[in-house]
């Protein structure tokens, strides 16, 4: 059972951190479809820097710097150039997929996986057992969820951030610098996605290969919607997706005679659609308003 929980958490952690990033962006009024791209850039830069420098701190730091710059670019395109936020987000994800593949060849002269000699620290490595396999960022995800909850629910900045997304017109009328709040939320998102990318590439596999995110950024986006933009809700949704992935693996081993593998492989994604559909139905029955008001320019 502990083994299963550990696998759930390991599968969930990158989605979880990226989902928190998406939550901040969406609370400020930006639908962030660039999570996949930021995961990829974070994973690549972290692995490449780990290989070149042998320092895990520099690796994570470099991933954060690159993702902050990409998030700044995202913000400039969306706010100053009034580009469509969905197109920019998708463009970021697709460009990152191409750029990281290109960078693999350009910097490492290979299309195969590059492997890092070092990985993320494991706080319980000395304890042994299944928990020893959890990286420091899994524990950080719990802490960051609490910090996110505190910022959003207990601080003036959190309230203003939420106002930027739920009613930007009213927020502007009250003197809230909406664009600056959006930049800040995207920067926080860039940082969280850098951590998510580092978790993806340096926690267990200690390697980067082309398109290693494999749609986890889009699962994170779904977790934001499923979690109703609430930090704890989003975290629970991300862990649910991680658990669905882990259950899919376990059921391939236990129910192979009963369920075809294609069906089991489909389960996490079917669970995503089912959970989001159920959320929409429940919200409609309660007569709840949508949590996000899109501005015409976005």
């Amino acid at each position: 059972m502990v083994d299963f929980v550990v696998t759930c958490l390991q599968a969930a952690t990158p989605i979880w951190l990226a989902a928190l990033a998406g939550m901040f962006a969406q609370r400020s009024g930006i639908l962030h479809l660039g999570l996949e791209g930021l995961l990829l850039s974070g994973a690549f830069v972290a692995t490449a820097t780990a290989i070149r420098t042998g320092s895990i701190l520099l690796a994570v730091g470099a991933a954060i710097v690159v993702n902050l710059l990409l998030s700044l670019l995202f913000w400039v395109l969306v706010t100053h150039f009034k580009a469509n936020v969905l197109i920019v987000g998708l463009g970021l994800s697709m460009s990152a997929a191409g750029a990281t593949g290109f960078a693999l060849v350009a910097f490492f002269d290979t299309e195969a996986a590059i492997q890092s000699p070092i990985g993320l620290p494991r706080p319980l490595a000395g304890v042994g057992g299944p928990l020893a396999g959890l990286s420091v960022l899994t524990f950080a995800a719990f802490a960051l969820t609490w910090v996110s909850w505190w910022v959003i629910r207990r601080t003036r900045a959190g309230l203003r951030l939420s106002a930027c997304g739920s009613d930007p017109f009213a927020a502007r009328s009250a003197g809230v610098p909406v664009d600056l709040y959006r930049m800040a939320s995207l920067q926080v998102g860039g940082l969280l996605c850098a951590l998510a990318g580092a978790e993806l590439s340096l926690a267990q596999v200690r390697s980067f290969s082309d398109n290693i995110a494999q749609g986890r950024g889009y699962l994170a986006f779904a977790a934001v919607l499923l979690g109703g933009l609430a930090p704890i809700g989003v975290s629970v949704a991300a862990v649910f997706f991680g658990s669905a992935l882990a259950f899919g693996i376990q059921s391939q081993l236990d129910f192979n005679d009963v369920l075809p593998p294609q069906f089991v492989l489909m389960l996490p994604y079917a669970a995503t659609i089912a959970a989001i559909s159920a959320t929409v139905v429940v919200k409609r029955r309660r007569g709840e308003q949508p949590t996000l008001v899109m501005e015409r320019t976005l």
């Binding site: 267990q204 596999v205 391939q252 081993l253 492989l265």
Partner: peptide, 18 residues
């Protein structure tokens, strides 16, 4: 078990670990 992709080392690791 099947990974569902020839390019997902992360899931490959999770399957093998399980």
């Amino acid at each position: 078990a099947f990974v569902g992709s020839f390019g997902d080392p992360v899931k490959g690791q999770q399957i093998a670990q399980t």
